[in-house]
Design a protein around this nucleic acid. Structure first.
Length: 124
DNA sequence: CCGTTGACACGAG
DNA sequence: TCTCGTGCCAACG
């Protein structure tokens, strides 16, 4: 497998795992990494989500995964904090999406209570 | 080859 | 709780 193929494979695995996170629940980047048997790659999970195409770009990129069928908003930091990013707009969208599905978000800290909304199964 | 970056994790204090 | 330091690892210049 060359590098591009390895990357596509890794990303697809990440997206499939993220699709398993239940509506109204959240998990962490590190947990997704563990679920896909790649515990050292939590940072890369974030990278994969960052590069998740929009539904419009998906077709052109031949990608079956896009921001409308992968619940990217359900992945947060290990502390429950919603990862800040530039542009900050993305972060705000994540907060809104979570609130729309009933997840309480501490708006001041941009943080979710993992004890109430966390989803951390040992295995798939 | 090296240094820097980044939607991260985690344990010490 | 919260701040820091350290570990990780692909991607880029």
């Amino acid at each position: 497998m060359n590098r591009a193929e390895e990357r596509a494979s890794f990303y697809a695995t990440v997206y499939e795992a993220v699709q398993l996170v239940p509506y109204g629940k959240v998990t962490s980047y590190g947990h997704i990494a563990r679920l896909i048997q790649s515990p050292q790659n939590s940072r890369r999970v974030g990278k994969a989500l960052k590069e998740l195409p929009t539904i419009n770009d998906a077709e052109e990129q031949r990608s079956p995964y896009h921001s409308d069928n992968v619940p990217w908003q359900r992945v947060v930091s290990f502390s429950g904090e919603i990862a800040p990013r530039v542009p900050m707009e993305g972060c705000a969208r994540q907060v809104e999406k979570l609130r729309n599905e009933g997840v309480d978000v501490d708006l001041l800290r941009a943080k979710v209570n993992l004890r109430a909304y966390g989803w951390f199964p040992e295995e798939l």
